[in-house]
Design a protein around this nucleic acid. Sequence first.
DNA 1: TTTCTAAACAGGAATCATTCCTATCAATTA
DNA 2: TAATTGATAGGAATGATTCCTGTTTAGAAA
Lengths: 147, 147
Amino acid sequence: MNLTEVKEHIVKSGLKATHQRMIVLQNLSNDSSHPTAEKLYDSLQMYNPSLSLSTVYRILDDLVEVGLINQVATKGGIKRYDANITPHNHIYCNITNEIFDFYDEELHQVIKDFFEKKQIANFKISDIKMQVNGFKVDLDQKVSFKQ
Amino acid sequence: MNLTEVKEHIVKSGLKATHQRMIVLQNLSNDSSHPTAEKLYDSLQMYNPSLSLSTVYRILDDLVEVGLINQVATKGGIKRYDANITPHNHIYCNITNEIFDFYDEELHQVIKDFFEKKQIANFKISDIKMQVNGFKVDLDQKVSFKQ
DNA sequence: TTTCTAAACAGGAATCATTCCTATCAATTA
DNA sequence: TAATTGATAGGAATGATTCCTGTTTAGAAA
C-alpha cells in the first residue's frame, strides 16, 4: 500500500490519520513476515527516530480494534501482526518461526459449508482460522503453496 | 486421569515420575479450561504449598517437549495448556476467553484429504489445527457442538 | 488563517509473564 | 555410606507489554 491508500483506510475506519498511524500501517502492509511490535519499531526507527515503542504498541492495538489489521495467534507468547485481512490461513515453521499465508477457495468453501450444516449451540462464529504446523525441509529455500 | 495413570504416562514418556510432575499433569488432565501456568499453580497451591511457580513453568515445558500435553496458540500472548492430545480443534470465545474443544470425524477427513492432494512445496506438515473464533450468545449458558 | 480542544504521542516507569540462577534435595549407583 | 545425577524451591533477572504524565498535533470552529 502507498501512503494515500493507507490514509484512506485509516480515515474510513474512523481513526484520525496521524503520521505515526500511517507509517505503522504502511510498513506492516508491505511486510509479509507477520512481524512483532518491536520488529516494526526497529524498521521504522531509521526514518522516524522520534517514534516511540509504546506508540507502536498502542497503534497496533487500535488498528486491530477497528479491524484494519489482525493479531496472529502463536504459541510463543509474543504478539505478531498481519495486515492481510482477507480470509486466509497460516503455515507455521516450527524451526524458523516463519509464518506464511495461504488460501484455497475450495477448502474455504468446504469449511464454510460444514459450519452452516453443523451448529455450535449458544455460539456465534465470527471467523474460522486454520494453522498448518510443521517445518521447512530446506531452510534456505522458499515455502510455496501449489494450486 | 488418576495418579496411577498419570504415573504410567510420565514413565512411558521417559521422564521420571516425580510428585510435582504427577500433580501438574493430573491437575491439567482434569481441567478442560485450557489453563495458564499461573492458574495451575494457584489450583495446586492449596494442597502443595511448597510447589514453586517456576517449577510449574518448567514442568509444563517438559511435558510439552515429550508430547504429553500441548501448548495452545492464542492471540493474547499468554500461554495456555491442554492435556487433550488427541486430534481436535478449538472454539474461542472472544468475550470470556474460554476455549472449548471440538472434534468432527468428517471434517477431519476432508482436511486430511485436502492436504494429501494439494502439496506445500518445501514444507513437511506435522499437524493441522483449526480455530473457530466468535462469542457466546448467552454468557451464562454452555457452548456445545452438536453432531 | 488562527485558535481551540480532544485525541494522540514521546519517553520513561511500572507491571506481568516467563526464564534463569543457585543452593538444596532426592533418587540412584558404586 | 559416599558420590553422582537430575529435579526442585525460591528469588532474581529478563523481556514484552502496558501505564502514566507532560507535550504535541489534527482537525474542527471561529
